[in-house]
Design a protein around this nucleic acid. Structure first.
Length: 610
RNA sequence: GGCCUCGUAGUACAAUGGAUAGUAUAAGAGCCUCCGAAGCUCCAGAUGCAGGUUCGAUUCCCGCCGAGGCUACCA
């Protein structure tokens, strides 16, 4: 039970007691005062108090001045709950409440050693989180990383709040883009392989995709020199013709093409798996477009039967969404082959068959907002029971100072490269500081990974997913301030104190089960920290509601920052008294646990030492 | 053209309609004989423009300006 959800009912009770209203009129209805209408928030530091009730919303209703209202409510709250509130003050329309130290100390006492704070009991609901979903013709880049970290983190937030989560990916493993790499390798590869060249599989294949582009450009230029238009040239260039033919051959099941396709996709998967392992992404189930792309045709039949879809003269099948403010949308081509949305319709159906999900999250970039809107709308019109549970977890693109990343223009930040770069920075910095000279090589490598990925994940998750974000290679790699390593450092720092205390004999008596004493009041920095730690549960609730890990990242940073300020001002080991020492040790332990728990939700490990 | 996002210090990010708009970086001034300086303290600096609703607007509504995306019988 959080402090805010404790205060709200008490305020409602006080309001009803103070202003029962005329029993005969409408203003005595039981829901005249509702918790949802209350605004209870943390008191601004420049005022006295811990939590503040905003009074303006009742002023008109009750026809009283805010000052008088605040006074009346404050008095009654104090009278009714002397153990919770110690005093109040009213400034303008704000009722500032001072919470008793006892409350905070009790909270500390019952939570300080909880290693998994915020975990909720099972609600027995299955939620699918579909994320990552790469094309198998090129390596992962920064945009994929944002997607992966988001999907993974949201899944984690759902898990601790009691949901059963199935993580899935859909591999976009077929199509013209795959054929381009294949054609290029056939023409220019001379039988080279990732093994023979020592290049990671996904990069190896990606190189041929890029090569296709550059070679195609040459052909196009040659054709254009003979007077062909650009569009014509691109269509008629021999390489493009070859890719198109390969796509047809692939669809017809040509054994040679299929064998080549499997070989090259195999290389890519090997590369992907290495990267996934490194960044900690995992999936309960992979779907492959090559085996799902024909699905959905049944749904098209179903839609025609239900008159949700209609057939045009040429045989193509459409849905009319103009009454919903959208366009007509094609769901089946005139040649009877399926389009993107057809596959997604089929896949949604299949997933529901398999998992009977309560909700299905699709972590997909906001470029596809329209597509996902249409998808959900079609499923609704088909009266699919799962349609309402479809949720597009839309996120903005990662941009560079030069603008959008484009593979063909070589302006992508490669996932493997940026990770390696960060590992190097972590290594240099760690060596420079020289605090872990006794680590063995294995421990060091693990630590560098922890710090590097901590920096990267934190950087990509600290921003509201919906928003576009900027990645500046020069400035974004930083281990100071609002960063993962800063939070990690704070954790390691606390652990260092706790280790020393364990080493000392006083550990048992100091951090034992005794209640923290109340003989001396909580000091401002102590209180600020404990009040913040108490908010963890509601932060988790907010992150869940908004499907937004950035809430957790910002919170973790604040905890670390407030702890560091507390730490600078007050000594833990040489506290003024034994009871203060006990209090601060518990406070430190709780801080470390909350930091570890929140960072875990982001997929960021926190080291004991760094 | 139509539809959808987004405009906050030099830069990057915050702010369920609430108090003097927070934080980080970069710039300036300090703090390691004392629990870890990847830290702390101080100092400066911002809501694109113009209206409206409200006791109160960064937030909601309208217009303009600017940025991005979608608007494929590509996926």
């Amino acid at each position: 039970m959080s402090i805010v959800s404790t205060i709200k009912p008490l305020v409602i009770k006080a309001l009803k007691e103070l202003y029962p209203g005329d029993p005969k009129s409408a203003d005595s209805l039981p829901d005249r005062f509702r918790e949802d209408d209350l605004t209870v928030s943390i008191t601004k530091p420049e005022f006295e108090g811990d939590y503040t009730l905003v009074l303006f919303s009742f002023v008109k209703q009750l026809k009283k001045s805010p000052e008088q209202l605040g006074k009346e409510i404050g008095e009654l709250l104090l009278k009714n709950n002397p153990e919770l509130f110690t005093s109040y003050n009213v400034i303008k329309g704000f009722l500032n409440l001072v919470i008793a130290d006892r409350y905070w100390l009790d909270f500390l006492q019952s939570n300080y050693s909880n290693r998994s704070p915020g975990v909720r009991p099972s609600v027995n609901k299955t939620i699918i989180v579909e994320y990552s979903s790469p094309n198998t013709n090129k390596p992962l880049h920064l945009g994929h990383l944002r997607n992966n970290f988001l999907g993974w983190s949201v899944a984690e937030i759902l898990k601790v709040t009691g949901h059963k989560v199935i993580k899935t990916a859909i591999m976009n493993d077929r199509g013209i883009h795959i054929c381009k790499s294949m054609v290029a390798w056939q023409r220019f590869g001379n039988g080279a392989t990732p093994d023979s060249t020592g290049i990671k599989g996904d990069h190896f294949v990606g190189d041929y995709y890029v090569l296709f582009g550059t070679e195609l450009k040459k052909e196009v230029e040659t054709l254009m020199a003979t007077g062909t238009t650009k569009d014509e040239a691109e269509k008629n260039a021999p390489l493009m013709q070859a890719a198109q033919k390969m796509l047809v051959d692939w669809e017809n099941g040509d054994p040679e093409v299929r064998a080549l396709w499997e070989k090259m996709n195999g290389w890519v998967y090997e590369g992907f798996n290495e990267t996934y392992k490194k960044i900690g992404s995992d999936f309960d189930k992979n779907y492959f477009e090559s085996s799902t792309y024909l699905m959905g045709k049944e749904i098209v039949e179903e839609g025609l039967a239900k008159n949700v879809f209609f057939k045009k003269e040429d045989g193509s099948v459409w849905i009319d969404l103009t009454s919903d403010g959208l366009d007509e949308k094609l769901v089946l081509r005139k040649d009877g082959t399926s389009v993107y949305i057809t596959q997604d319709l089929g896949l949604a159906d299949k997933k529901y068959e398999e998992f009977h999900y309560y909700q299905s999250f699709h972590v997909i970039a906001d470029e596809q907002n329209y597509h996902m809107k249409v998808l959900k709308l079609i499923l609704k019109k088909l009266q699919k029971p799962y349609a309402d549970g479809i949720y597009h977890l839309s996120y903005g693109l990662v941009e560079l100072p030069t603008g959008r990343m484009k593979t063909r223009e070589g302006t992508v930040v490669d996932a493997d490269e940026i990770i390696e770069e960060l590992i190097k920075v972590a290594k240099d910095k760690t060596e420079e500081l020289g605090k872990v000279k006794d680590f063995n090589p294995g421990e060091l490598i693990e630590l560098y990974d922890t710090i590097a990925l901590g920096a990267l994940k934190f950087f990509l998750l600290r921003v509201d997913p919906k928003k576009r974000m900027l990645f500046n290679p020069e400035e974004s790699i930083d281990f100071h301030g609002f960063t993962g390593p800063f939070v990690q450092y704070t954790h390691a720092r606390i652990k260092s104190i706790l280790r020393k205390e364990i080493a000392g004999v006083s550990r048992q008596s100091a951090v034992g089960s005794s209640q923290p004493a109340v003989s001396s009041p909580l000091l401002p920095k102590e209180k600020e920290l404990i009040v913040l730690l108490e908010q963890y549960e509601s932060i988790l609730g907010q992150a869940l509601e908004e499907h937004n890990p950035s809430v957790v990242a910002i919170y973790a940073f604040n905890v670390a920052k407030v702890f560091n300020a507390f730490y600078t001002e007050h000594s833990v080991m040489s506290a003024e008294s034994e009871e203060k020492k006990v209090l601060r040790l518990k406070l430190s332990e709780l801080t470390a646990n909350v930091i570890a728990a929140s960072m875990a939700l982001l997929g960021v490990k926190v080291p004991e030492r760094m």
